[in-house]
């Protein structure tokens, strides 16, 4: 039976240096550790399939190595397809989009990202709208309009390629608690969608359920993760290099391991009838394979009883 929600997983594996390890046993005996289990795309993609994912979302900073190993996006996509996995989307960052003089460069970079994703066969370009808050915020309305203008232009181009640009607002982004909803309103709903990162919105201090209900028509996909920190104080969100903490504190947890009302959100998604890709994001986890399995179990066995 076709399901309403298709699970994808964000690729935070950093560099995967081999396409396929043919001498796995021999390689294992070099240091008799589990390192060799995380070094080739063949096994990483098998883990996706085995833990119940149909898709993978690519990180743009990995593309150099991916293309070095596979030659072309089509070759990677075919390899993934052989493992039962599709490329669902890719992340992108619109750095300097708040600066009017950078408009051309930002849009050109965005269009290149759209072309790259199209070559991989992906459908969602989940896009951080701007720089970090530190050194750039607070923004005036003109700055917000500049960002919206970039997103509109990239989004219009993306639509022509069958790709949805979705705003993905990090909790330390220049568009933040005080104006991230305003940014959404300033963009053209025809071309600019939203990728709801459940943890990021809560970390910013917004109400997850209210946010979903307000923007559900624009939410094209999700970055689905949990957190144990709702409403992080301004002095942290607006500080330098916020994402990685000196003491190893984690902002993000696997769905079900934090405190977000994910079951309530899922009921709202059911009531609205959300259909499409939902990308689990396990960044910050010390063990991605375990995190993939934990997340998949929670979604299939817990949330899946509500809606799937």
């Amino acid at each position: 039976m076709e399901q309403n929600i298709r699970l994808s997983h964000m690729s935070h594996w950093k560099t995967v240096p081999y396409r396929q390890i043919g001498n796995f046993r021999e390689f294992y005996y070099e240091d008799r550790s589990n390192n060799c289990y995380y070094m080739d795309w063949d096994r990483i993609l098998r883990y996706h399939r085995a833990t119940g994912y149909e898709g993978i979302e690519l990180a743009p900073w990995d593309l150099g190595e991916i293309l070095g190993l596979f030659g072309t996006p089509a070759e990677y996509t075919a390899f993934a397809k052989d493992h039962g996995i599709e490329v669902s989307g890719m992340f992108h960052g619109c750095n300097d989009s708040h600066i009017a003089g950078k408009h051309g460069d930002v849009v050109a970079a965005g269009k290149r990202a759209v072309d790259t994703l199209a070559a991989f066969g992906g459908k969602h370009l989940n896009t951080c709208p701007g720089n970090n808050y530190y050194g750039n915020g607070p923004l005036d309305v003109e700055g917000l309009r500049n960002i919206a203008s970039c997103l509109d232009e990239i989004g219009e181009y993306a639509e022509s390629k069958g790709i949805a640009v979705g705003i993905h607002n990090e909790f330390f982004c220049v568009t933040n608690r005080e104006n991230h909803r305003q940014l959404i309103e300033l963009t053209n709903p025809k071309y600019v969608h939203y990728c709801l990162d459940t943890a990021q919105v809560a970390l910013m201090g917004d109400d997850l359920i209210d946010f979903y209900d307000t923007y559900r028509e624009r939410i094209a996909t999700f970055h689905f993760k949990d957190t144990a920190d709702i409403g992080v104080p301004d002095e942290i969100r607006y500080d330098r290099d916020v994402e990685i903490r000196d003491d190893g504190h984690r902002w993000f947890w696997e769905p079900g391991e934090g405190i977000l009302p994910l079951e309530e959100l899922w009921r709202h998604m059911r009531d609205y009838g959300f259909r499409g890709w939902l990308t689990v994001e396990d960044d910050g986890s010390p063990d991605y394979l375990a995190a993939m399995a934990l997340s998949s179990y929670y979604i299939n066995e817990k949330l899946g009883k509500i809606y799937r």
Binding site: W13, K14, T15, V16, P17, S33, N34, N35, Y37, Y38, M39, G248, G284, S285, P286, D287, Y288, L289
Partner: peptide
């Protein structure tokens, strides 16, 4: 650069 458990540390 390469992923193995606990790299995040």
């Amino acid at each position: 650069d390469n992923q193995a458990p606990n790299r995040n540390r």
